[in-house]
Design a protein around this nucleic acid. Sequence first.
DNA 1: TTAGCCTTGAGT
DNA 2: ACTCAAGGCTAA
Length: 467
Amino acid sequence: MEYRHDVCLEELCPVCGDKVSGYHYGLLTCESCKGFFKRTVQNSKKYTCIENQACRIDKIQRKRCPFCRFQKCLHVGMRLEAVRADRLRGGRNKFGPMYKHDRALKQQRKALIQASSICPESSLLLASSKHQKAFTVTGGLHRHTVFWSTPSLCSFLPSNSSGVTQDLHTSLSNQTFMLEYSSNCASSTGTAAGIVINPSQYSSHFSNQGSRMPPLVVEFLRCDPDEIELQNKITTRLQQEQMCREKHRDNDTFSLMCIMADQMLCSIVQWARASIFFKQLKVSDQMKILHHCWSELLLLDIISRQVLYGKEGSLLLVTGQEVILSDLVSCVSPLVASLTQRGQDLVEKLHALKVDRQEFACIKFLILFNPDVKELEGHGFVETVQKQVEGALLEYILSSSSQYLGRFAHLLLCLSELRSLSTLTEDYLYFRHLRGEVPCNNLLNEMLHAKCSWNEDFYVHDSIRKH
DNA sequence: TTAGCCTTGAGT
DNA sequence: ACTCAAGGCTAA
C-alpha cells in the first residue's frame, strides 16, 4: 500500500488501499471493507489471528486475516454504532453532517493547496526527513553538577497494548475518546479517524474563542502541558538531582544542557502518551514515531517558548532562566553558533507571523504523526491523523487570519526549516554521543542510540523483550 | 465468506 | 426528484 500523494489518498481505502466507494460507517472506505465491517458487527463475529495480530492488510491480503482486518477497521476509525441494530434500510443517520463537513474540508484543503501552489500533499513539506534536530544552548548558566538516570522510553509506554481484544463490546469501550458528534459545532474532525470532540467540554476554558475554534484544536490545547507547571517540574527535578549527585561527574554546560533536554524529552513523551490519537497506536508504533520525531519536537518546544514568551536577544530556558544570545554564541563552537543563529532566525520568522499557542499545538501533532516513519503497523491511521490535523490547522487559520493562504504556506515552510535544523542538530548530538559526551542512562541517550541502529530494530526493542 | 451490485428511504 | 449511506442479495 503505497500512499504517495494526497490525490491518491483521497481515493484509497484506509483499511486495505482499495478504491473508495463512499462514506461507510464513519469514513471513506471501499465497498469490500464496508461489507466486511457490516457482516462482522451484525453477526457479532469473533476472529482469531494465527500470526501475531499484526498482519498486513492490503487489497490482495485482506481476506487472509479477518481478525487483523477488523482491528484495522476499528483502528482507522470505522464506527460500530453506525451499523444499525434494527437493520433498517435507507435514510440517513447522525453521521450525515459529519460526512458533509468532511467533504467540505477536503474540498477546502484541495482548493487551498492548489491556490498555494503547494504540492497536493502538504506532507511533502511536512514529512520527508530521516531524523531531526537538537538544541544548541550553552553559556554561563549553572555552575553545578547535575546528573541522573531517566527511565527508558519503553518504560514510559504501556507494556500491554499489544494484546488486542477481539470482543466487540470491549472495542466499543476502548473508544471512549470518541465523543459524540455535535452537528452544531464548527468542527474539523469527524473524518477518517472518527474522532469528534464535543466543544462544550472545553468551552469554559476558551470561552472567548470556543465557538470558532475547531474542536480538534481545542483538544490539542488541552493536551498541551502548562508552561508554568513544566517549568516547576523540571526545575525541581534538576535541583533534586543536583543535591543527590553533586559529587558525580563533570558539570560542563553541554552536559547540563543534555540533562535539561532529557527532562524535556520525558515531558514530550508524557505529552504524547496523554494525547488524543497517540494512545490508539500500538506501543511498537509509538516507539517508532517517537524515535523519529523526538528531536524535532524538542526543537519546536524550545523555539515555541522563544516565540510565545521569550525576549529579543535572549534565550529562555524551560527552567525560566534567560541566557543572553550574544554571550552564548561567543562561547560555543562555530557549528553550534551557526545552528543557534538558524534557530534564532526561525524564531524571528515565527514571531513575525505571530504564531500562537493553538498553531504550535497543531504543529506538534503534525510532527508527531509523520507518515514517513517506516514500517508502521498503523501507517494508514497515522496518515489519517495527519490529514485531520492539517484540516484542523487550516480551519483554525481560516477562522483567525485573513491572510490564510500565505499563512498556511509559511507555516509549512517554517516546518521544513525546523526539520532541516533538527537533522543538523541531531547529527551534532550524535557526534558528541559517539564521543561519549552525552550523559548516559537517560532518554536522550536512548534516542541517540536508536539513531545509530537506524535500520535494525532497535535498542528499545531489546528493552521491550527484557520487560 | 467475499465483494460487487441492488434496494431502500430520510434528508435535501 | 435527487442524493447517498444504510442494509440486502447472490455468484464466485
